[in-house]
C-alpha cells in the first residue's frame, strides 16, 4: 500500500473519531453514551481481549529451548560467563528480561561508538530509535500513573509525588507537565521517523500509523483540555470516581474536548488487544529472550514430541554388511 495513502487513511480515521465525539456530545447530546457506556464497553473489550490474546499465546506450547545468545555461555569454570546475555539460571534470565523490558537493551545494542571514516568517534543513527522509544514509553507510563489521581480519593502519596515531580517547572498555569511535552515530542518523532526513513516507510502499514496518530490525538486533546479549554478537573474526577465505583453520574458542562479525549482513549483501549500494541505483553513470552542458555545441562521437554521414522543401525548394516566386513569393520550380525 502506498505509504502516503496509509498515512492519510490513518489520519482520516482519527479525525473521523474526533468528529464522532464532537457531534455525538456537542450536537446530539449523547453525554452518557460517550461518558459512560462507551468507556465501559471499551474497557471491558480491553481487559477481556488482552487476557484472551495472552491465553491464546500461552496455549501454544514451547517445543524447543531457543534463546538467542548474545555473549559467552556458561561452560568451563574459568571461562568468563556473560550472565546477562547468555543467562544460565532462571535468576539470570529474569535480569535479562527486566533489562529488556525496562531499558530496551536489545534496541540499545544499536547504539555504539563508532569510527566513521576517520578517527572521529560518533554514534550510529539507530540510537535515536532507542531514545524515542524510551522517551515515549516512559512518558506514557508516567501519564497513565498520573491519571490515577482522578480515580482515587484520597490520592495516594506516590501519585501525588509523580505529579509534583512531573510538574516541577511550573511554567504555565495550570501546571504543564514535563511528560506531556516529552510524550508529544516522542510520539511525533516516532511518527516522523516512519515517514522520513525510506526503509521504515516501506515496511509501515496503516496499522502502524493509526495507533501513533490516535495516541497523538489523545495527547493533544489532553493538553488542550488543561491548557486551553480549562475543563473543570473536579468534575472530571467526579465522573472518573463514579465510573470506578460502578455508579457513574454524568456531570453537566464537561466540555466537548473532554469527551473527545475520553472517546479516543476508549478507542485505543478497545483497539489494543487486536493490534501490535500487544507487544507489551508479548515481550514477556518471547522464547528467544525468556529462556536460559542451559540447553545441554537441563533437558527441555517438548509436549508434542512424537516418534519419527528413522534409519536404524540394523537397516544400515543390512545395506552395507558385506562391504563393512571387507574393510574389517565389526558387524553386529554375521
Amino acid at each position: 500500500m502506498n505509504p502516503w495513502y496509509s498515512v492519510l487513511i490513518s489520519l482520516f480515521i482519527v479525525i473521523g473519531l474526533v468528529l464522532i465525539a464532537l457531534i455525538g456530545v456537542g450536537s446530539i447530546g449523547l453525554n452518557s453514551l460517550f461518558g459512560v457506556y462507551i468507556p465501559y464497553v471499551a474497557f471491558a473489550v480491553f481487559i477481556i481481549g488482552f487476557i484472551w490474546r495472552v491465553v491464546e499465546w500461552a496455549r501454544a506450547p514451547v517445543p524447543f529451548k531457543i534463546p538467542t545468545t548474545g555473549g559467552q555461555g556458561k561452560s568451563l569454570p574459568w571461562m568468563k560467563h556473560e550472565k546477562l546475555d547468555s543467562p544460565f539460571t532462571t535468576g539470570q534470565v529474569i535480569v535479562r528480561m527486566l533489562l529488556e523490558v525496562f531499558l530496551f537493551r536489545s534496541l540499545f545494542r544499536n547504539v555504539k561508538g563508532e569510527l566513521r571514516g576517520g578517527p572521529r568517534l560518533t554514534f550510529a543513527s539507530s540510537k535515536w530509535l532507542w531514545l524515542f522509544g524510551i522517551l515515549f514509553h516512559y512518558s506514557f507510563l508516567t501519564i497513565v500513573l498520573r491519571h490515577l489521581r482522578f480515580f482515587t480519593e484520597p490520592v495516594p502519596q506516590w501519585v501525588q509525588l509523580i505529579s509534583s515531580l512531573d510538574g516541577f517547572f511550573e511554567i504555565l498555569v495550570p501546571t504543564f507537565f514535563l511528560t506531556d511535552a516529552a510524550f508529544l515530542l516522542a510520539a511525533t518523532l516516532l511518527f516522523l521517523r516512519r515517514v522520513v526513513i525510506p526503509q521504515v516507510r516501506y515496511i509501515s502499514l496503516p496499522n502502524d500509523y493509526f495507533p501513533l496518530l490516535l495516541i497523538l490525538g489523545i495527547g493533544i486533546s489532553g493538553i488542550l483540555m488543561r491548557q486551553v479549554f480549562h475543563v473543570d478537573l473536579e468534575k472530571v474526577k467526579e465522573l472518573a470516581i463514579g465510573l470506578a465505583a460502578f455508579s457513574p453520574t454524568v456531570p453537566k458542562e464537561l466540555g466537548s474536548v473532554f469527551y473527545v479525549h475520553l472517546f479516543l482513549v476508549s478507542v485505543l483501549a478497545a483497539y489494543i488487544p487486536w493490534s501490535k500494541i500487544m507487544h507489551a505483553a508479548g515481550v514477556f513470552m518471547s522464547p528467544t529472550r525468556n529462556m536460559a542458555n542451559n540447553n545441554r545441562a537441563v533437558r527441555h521437554i517438548n509436549p508434542w514430541n512424537y516418534p519419527v521414522k528413522v534409519h536404524t543401525y540394523e537397516e544400515y548394516e543390512d545395506d552395507f554388511r558385506a562391504k563393512m566386513k571387507e574393510v574389517g569393520l565389526p558387524v553386529d550380525k554375521e
Binding site: 563508532e114 566513521r116 550510529a124 543513527s125 525510506p198
Partner: peptide, 12 residues
C-alpha cells in the same frame, strides 16, 4: 527503499 540507507549509513 535501499538507496537512502546505502547513501547515509556511514559505518563502513
Amino acid at each position: 527503499d535501499a538507496r537512502k540507507f546505502l547513501a547515509t549509513e556511514e559505518n563502513r
